[in-house]
Design a protein around this nucleic acid. Sequence first.
DNA 1: TATTGTTATACTCTATAACTATA
DNA 2: TATAGTTATAGAGTATAACAATA
Lengths: 146, 146
Amino acid sequence: MPDLSRTPDDTAAVNALRSGVMRLSRRLKHQRVDESLSPTEMSVLGTLARCGSATPGELARKEHVQPPSMTRIVALLESKGLVGLEPHPEDRRQKVVRQTELAEAMLEESRRKRNAWLAELAGRLDEDEWATLRAAAPVLEKLAHM
Amino acid sequence: MPDLSRTPDDTAAVNALRSGVMRLSRRLKHQRVDESLSPTEMSVLGTLARCGSATPGELARKEHVQPPSMTRIVALLESKGLVGLEPHPEDRRQKVVRQTELAEAMLEESRRKRNAWLAELAGRLDEDEWATLRAAAPVLEKLAHM
DNA sequence: TATTGTTATACTCTATAACTATA
DNA sequence: TATAGTTATAGAGTATAACAATA
């Protein structure tokens, strides 16, 4: 059971959190479920799967990248047939990005591969550790969005 | 209180964890405590502060980067006077990397700046969320090292 | 005049391959 | 022959600045 009080010496926790996130992110880069897609590109597909569709600008804000970077990402995903582009119904400057059925199938395949990684992982962590990560995941998401 | 049972459908948790870690790592890149040092470079200093000293090869393994990348990082840190290089006592191929007093002072300054970021952060998370992250930090570290 | 998205360009970080020195 | 570290080079991913089209 972790100490729930907020002490003035949370510095060590922040340090550990930052270090852990940065190192794990480097490992995740290599643990790709699809070799041809970068983590951000996978993340965009995940966002589209949750939100249905979004404009490039919205995606850039959600992924915390600059608009030109999202232009490049969307173009690559489109060239692979993973997203489709439609004109925006109300604003002709904007576009609507939508995932294709191919993307859905790929995400399903990714889920299967991630389960293999998970099984390997869960075997080495104990129950409490894994429960902690399950609980932390949404908080990390929240933090990333703040 | 999180659900402690390990269900077969941990897939969603893994997804959220991966997404959260990747997005947060991108934000952390920009939230640098020292503008002139990259996250990995800061992480190396943190490792040296904990371990006292290490060889370039050990640092590369700990940070999950390839040896040539660590060569570059160590060279940069040395040029800034943040680490010193000594000959290895037993093996003339190896070197010993050690943090300087300047690095210690910089880490202390970093800790102060991180506290400001933490105060801003803690104000927006509730008690349980922050406690969850405190508990998760060491598990993320463990995961990164597995 | 402000905003959305794109094009052109450059930078940061990391990796791979080939090399040197030592074990 | 194997290992630690370095040098040289290339690639991935992102950013900034300047631009086009639309609001």
